[in-house]
């Protein structure tokens, strides 16, 4: 879609034209869902959050002034929703964890550790196939909020640094250094997972 067509679509949406809104959802739903899924790591949560992102677009379209690309504005909404959802999930998890018996928790952790250490391969071998995907998702989930956001936007969604700066409101140098740390953390996670089989 050309920028002029998109501008027209947004003008129609500002007049609350439901057909224009439907077109925008169809145009961006895959991208938004993909971004949100990688930020949250859960399909069910990603579906719900992706819907909330478009509802925010419908409600707040008057605030879009066209100073950035529409997709950049949309991604900013999506990343903010993801952050809020993760906070909510973290609170729920914390609450659930408090209710867990400590012994059960220890045995579960031991079982998880054993399962992980016996099923992995070398980093350069495992970055192909389902196991690599699972491991990468796991590693992304272990990053802190800001690192995860940058990694998803840059390495998975392929956005430019300029777009990421606009979405996150962080200086480019900060974006690059945090992204570097995030990549190193992912690489180290893969290396740790590969170690048992190397022996």
């Amino acid at each position: 879609m050309s920028p002029a067509d998109e501008a027209l679509l947004i003008e129609r949406l500002k007049r609350r034209d439901e057909r224009a809104f439907n077109e925008i959802v169809r145009l961006y739903e895959a991208k938004v869902f993909g971004l949100v899924y990688k930020m949250l790591g859960s399909r069910g949560e990603a579906e719900d959050v992706a819907q909330e992102v478009f509802i925010t677009v419908f409600k707040a379209i008057d605030q879009f002034r066209g100073e950035s690309k529409f997709s950049t504005w949309l991604y900013r909404i999506a990343t903010n929703h993801c952050k809020n959802r993760r906070k909510l999930l973290a609170r729920r998890m914390e609450h659930a964890r408090e209710q867990l018996d400590e012994a059960t928790e220890r045995s579960h952790a031991a079982a998880m550790s054993k399962a992980t250490s016996t099923t992995l391969g070398r980093p350069d071998e495992i970055v192909e196939g389902f196991e690599a995907e699972r491991l990468l998702h796991e590693a992304i989930g272990l990053l802190d909020e800001e690192q995860r956001e940058l990694l998803v936007l840059r390495d998975i969604e392929g956005l430019s640094y300029q777009e990421i700066v606009e979405i996150t409101a962080q200086p480019e140098g900060t974006v690059k250094s945090r992204l570097h740390r995030a990549r190193i953390a992912i690489k180290e996670h893969l290396e740790r997972a590969a170690r048992p089989r190397k022996k």
Binding site: V127, L136, I186
Partner: peptide, 24 residues
Amino acid sequence: QLRTTVAGLRGLSTPPPASDILQG
């Protein structure tokens, strides 16, 4: 290893949503 890691991230797939997002 860094190249492999980044290539792996760029190749991550997304499952399709189970329900229709627009209808939701």
